[in-house]
Nucleic acid binder design. Sequence first.
DNA 1: GTATCTGCAAATGTTTTGCACTCCA
DNA 2: TGGAGTGCAAAACATTTGCAGATAC
Lengths: 150, 150
Amino acid sequence: MAADTKNVSEKKRMAISEKLNRLGLKATPQRLAILELLDGNTSHPSAEEIYQRLKPVYPSLSLATVYGTVETLAKAGELQELNIDPVRKRFDPNPQPHGHFLCQDCGKVYDIELDFPKLDVPQELGEFLAESYSVNLYGICPGCRKKGRK
Amino acid sequence: MAADTKNVSEKKRMAISEKLNRLGLKATPQRLAILELLDGNTSHPSAEEIYQRLKPVYPSLSLATVYGTVETLAKAGELQELNIDPVRKRFDPNPQPHGHFLCQDCGKVYDIELDFPKLDVPQELGEFLAESYSVNLYGICPGCRKKGRK
DNA sequence: GTATCTGCAAATGTTTTGCACTCCA
DNA sequence: TGGAGTGCAAAACATTTGCAGATAC
């Protein structure tokens, strides 16, 4: 069991490592850790949250490195920066445009399915050239609605 | 001519003043100035830009007052705060949800028409209750495309 | 070996806050 | 006149930057 788990994360780490090299980026332990944390993560953490989660495991990790890494990865198209939260950037390992919902009660960001048409990007919109887009919703999430009903 | 212009802005100011009172807000010179500046303004200024524009006319105006005023007005539903620019909030006098385009070259924010369906808000989306939403596009604006082509 | 990357600390820029004073209703 | 609103200065955050030392390739 433990061996299996280890194999799985080994494999995952190797895949991430190769992906980084393919992008011309060095596969440093910090980058591996950040990408591994984000992989399949739907909590849309901020830079600070990523830092706090990894600090216990990589005590030498610096917040500036987290900022640098997510910026590099966003530019490489491996993840997206979300401007949904007015206070801080959030990061999403899924670089495809999709809807997000910010709960104004608990501050959590959720992926959300919309029947909005997908927009292919880059796309010409009149004389504007759109290279990416985002759909942000604001309101109350299911959990907070239940709490509110008390 | 000058008299007409004065009448027009007099009327406008009175309308704004009444609107504020209707909302239970005091019609202070600062609020009138901010609302008058924003009225019909499609440049989506930041708090700092509003402050810089009004400072020459109202030298005592404080940046904190600008922040307070736009927050109050946004809560009252009279304008909307845009989270499109990762660095600073922008303000739009049109409180209706509509598309925005941020030019990654010049930093200008444009209103944009989309054939995306309008979403009535508040709206139930599964168990989520959406109270507002925004569609943000990122790319290059017509002016910057022309410049880039040089 | 070397260009890239990291960590640290300081700087920057935006937004918020506390509080005394002012002024609109 | 009283409570809401303003201005000021300081504080609080999020993010960026410069640079010296470390390290992946």
